[in-house]
Design a protein around this nucleic acid. Structure first.
Lengths: 347, 347
DNA sequence: CGTAGTATTGTAAGCGCTTACAATGCTAAG
DNA sequence: CTTAGCATTGTAAGCGCTTACAATACTACG
């Protein structure tokens, strides 16, 4: 606690020797190192972080910037923990600390990020909830600090990102439904300005097009991440001359409301309306029939992001090509009974 | 980006003046300050964090240590974001940065904490998931760093903590049930070693005792935070000579499984089994009949913790008595229809 | 025995910023 | 006209650590 000088004096060596011993510098007598390490342990000494950073010009920590949104607080939550877990594991293995930096939705996320970056508080950054147009990316690129984003963006160019394979998910889902004879396939999209909303929407149109199905904007419904929205979805899709026979949910939790509403109307999921959820969530596990959905390992996202960042850090990176990683993490389909072929005699 | 010296040279003043201007030191000519601030803005200058910390001996940041647990990931969940939101708001208002520090369950949380503390990486600490015996508290106390815990512990003494008013919750719940004629009141408790489990259990026994009800350990059931456990709960409580007529749930999500199982047995929540949940959770909102439960503002917990910490920091703390805050945040009962009087003709 | 070469340690110069203290230029009182 | 007193600015000494470079002590060799 009293600094390296204290420890050095105690041992009768110079601070340089202590520093070298502690940092694994090879130019130290093995015996000396041993002594120093023991003494450090005994006296509970740990190098002052600020001093180290200042002297080395490196912080040994990376930031993960997340946004706090009172509204969708519970949604980010689950996603968050799993991802952080993966990141933490990888970074820790490389001697890096992960600092989760929460930015209130109410404050300017650009300024918030800028503070940490320009102050040199972290060696690298990971961003979440990327927007289609996201100034933060330009900021990071121009500042030259290594970074990775969770989610693609149209801003910046040639930077590393990790994203979900929304295209693959959508293609698989639509293929499956079309296979079952569905031609009126609806979709729910997230309200909000994160880029994944747009991507999911595009993938939807593309997939329909591939099968020669017309796009009908009446089959597109914006939802929040709440079960309540199910009523509107069901009534909106079925009470029309050309009702939808299937729906793909961005927020799987919507299934709860849909199931309830269907039950009220005496209808059954998988027969009267085929439902495919996007991302297997605990809160939907108990529904009967089981929701057909796509699964995903949250920690894997985190490790992927962390690795992508490591590739850019001046650590043991053996000149790994460009160092840029752009990866769409695939999700696997977990068949349930919430979807099925169009009943004979229906459109 | 190029340091305060660069800025100073650019302006033809000394670094001291620049520093003073930037830090709001009153001994600077107003005009000079203006010039400096403008130049800093224009050149995108921001003081190096490490250098500041080293010179000032203060980091202007506080850590919030959380534990990542793949298993119970969903438990910490929902809790996290809301609480962080409150903390962040209060701390930011005082010019402090909040660093969320995730510790993998697999690694030693004591060592993890120690690193950040002894390195002087933060000015203060907030701990979550306090254990009944928690060495981290002793560590923090002996290190002298200001800290607050979310949850009580038997370790340490005279430190600040914020916790939920489990006692109040339990008393209210039991009172309400007894009022309805219940005398066989069961409870579910969290498995795991966090202290709140023990506290909830004690409060349960105390409340029963207050009403002269005997404690029966058969009425105590350990659950995880999953809806599945409902089956065991229902069958275990009802299939016995002296069945329980009511149950208080630590994890409200258990209600989902209970409802399902009751339905399978042709029974109805609120009539055949009274249910009171502990903490209103989104995932249970959709159940019918609505679960009677206790509500809580997550951000309030966060702000309370942050304030308790601020009281210990050498900021604008006007000698606030001892600076120690120990507070049990009350929860409000939100009546639903999942509980009711014991039907006539029953035990 | 002298010397180049190697292993180990010490010396001291920063890293970029803050801040006590000294210095300067004024203003206003004597 | 002098000088005490205030406002403003500059000078320079660290903060605790790392690291280039110098110094020292050995070892092995010719």
């Amino acid at each position: 606690m009293r600094g390296i000088a204290h420890l050095a004096r105690e041992l009768g060596v110079s601070t340089a020797t202590v520093s070298r011993a502690l940092n694994g510098n090879p130019n130290v007598n093995a015996a000396t190192r041993q002594t120093v390490l023991e003494a450090a342990q005994r006296l509970g000494y740990a190098a002052n972080q600020a001093a180290r950073s200042l002297a080395q010009g490196v912080t040994h920590s990376v930031g993960f910037m997340i946004e706090l949104d009172q509204e969708s607080t519970t949604s980010t939550d689950y996603f968050f923990m799993g991802v952080v877990e993966g990141m933490q594991a990888v970074l820790a293995a490389h001697g890096l600390d992960l600092l989760v930096l929460p930015c209130a939705k109410s404050q300017d996320n650009f300024t918030y990020l800028q503070r940490f970056v320009s102050r040199g508080a972290v060696d690298g950054m990971i961003l979440a909830e990327t927007r289609r147009i996201d100034r933060r990316i330009d900021l990071l690129q121009s500042s030259g600090i290594p970074f990775v984003t969770l989610g693609r963006s149209d801003s910046g160019s040639g930077y590393s990102w990790i994203d979900l394979d929304f295209e693959g998910v959508m293609a698989t889902a639509v293929d499956r439904l079309v296979q079952g004879g569905h031609r009126r396939i609806a979709v729910t999209l997230p309200s909000g300005d994160a880029n994944y909303g747009s991507i999911f929407a595009e993938a939807y149109r593309d997939s329909l097009a591939r099968h020669g199905l017309a796009f009908d904007e009446d089959l597109v419904i914006l939802t929040r991440r709440r079960e309540d929205d199910g009523d509107a979805v069901v009534d909106g899709l079925l009470d029309r001359p050309d009702p939808a026979t299937a729906i793909i949910l961005f927020y799987e939790v919507t299934a709860i409301g849909i199931y309830r509403r269907l039950a009220e109307r005496g209808l059954r999921p998988g027969r009267d309306l085929s439902i495919i959820g996007f991302r297997g969530e605990d809160s939907v596990r108990f529904l009967t029939p089981q929701v057909t959905c796509f699964h995903l390992s949250l920690p894997d996202i985190g490790t992927a992001a962390a690795r992508a960042l490591l590739a850019q850090l001046p650590l043991a990176a053996p000149a790994s090509s460009s160092g840029i990683v752009q990866c769409r993490v695939p999700l696997s389909l977990v068949p349930g009974e919430s979807d099925g072929p169009v009943p004979a005699g229906q459109a």
